[in-house]
Simulated scan of single mutants.
Amino acid sequence: MKVLLVDDSGVMRKIIARGLNSLWVDEVVEAADGVEALSKFGDGVGFDMILTDWNMPNMNGLEFVKAVRNDGHKLPIMMITTETEKSQVLLAIQAGVNDYLVKPFDQETLQKKLERVIPNPTLA
């Protein structure tokens, strides 16, 4: 499984990537903002999922999600953010995210959220 991980915090990317790699994710491609993520995403071929932060410079997570969805990509997207207001969650869902994970979170919560979006292939 290949995941695109978008977060402006290098420390947070490393923590999340480590958590993903301890699950069933084979490859994590990192980007620091939506602009870099779009460049790395390219035509989307080969990616199984996107995890993106909301608050980032240059292009925030919501703008990035809209750009991916406007290009017709259907792969699962999870927003990982500190934004907890119901109106913010609704904006993310309307933009096309499949699930929402609030920071801070633990490994068990990350795994449960991932399994809601993509079933664990090792259990299939």
Rank of each mutant, 00 (worst) to 15 (best):
Arg18Gln: 09
Arg18Ile: 01
Arg18Lys: 12
Arg18Pro: 00
Gly19Lys: 03
Gly19Asn: 06
Leu20Arg: 01
Leu20Pro: 00
Asn21Lys: 15
Asn21Glu: 13
Asn21Gln: 14
Ser22Trp: 07
Ser22Thr: 11
Leu23Pro: 07
Leu23Phe: 13
Trp24Ala: 08
Val25Tyr: 01
Val25Asp: 02
Val25Ala: 04
Val25Phe: 02
Val25Met: 03
Asp26Leu: 06
Glu27Cys: 08
Glu27Tyr: 04
Val29Leu: 11
Val29Pro: 07
Glu30Phe: 05
Ala31Gly: 09
Ala31Thr: 06
Ala31Cys: 07
Ala32Lys: 14
Ala32Asn: 13
Ala32Leu: 09
Asp33Phe: 00
Asp33His: 14
Asp33Pro: 02
Gly34Trp: 08
Gly34Thr: 12
Val35Phe: 03
Glu36Thr: 06
Ala37Asn: 05
Ala37Lys: 05
Ala37Thr: 04
Leu38Cys: 11
Leu38Val: 08
Ser39Ile: 10
Lys40Arg: 15
Lys40Gln: 14
Lys40Cys: 08
Lys40Thr: 10
Lys40Glu: 13
Phe41Glu: 05
Phe41Val: 13
Gly42Leu: 10
Gly42Val: 15
Gly42Cys: 13
Asp43Ser: 15
Asp43His: 11
Val45Phe: 08
Val45Asp: 14
Gly46Cys: 13
Gly46Asp: 13
Phe47Val: 11
Asp48Thr: 09
Met49Gly: 06
Met49Ile: 09
Met49Tyr: 03
Ile50Tyr: 05
Ile50Ala: 03
Ile50Pro: 01
Ile50Asn: 03
Leu51Tyr: 00
Leu51Asp: 02
Leu51Glu: 01
Thr52His: 04
Thr52Met: 03
Asp53Tyr: 04
Asp53Gln: 05
Asp53Pro: 03
Met56Arg: 07
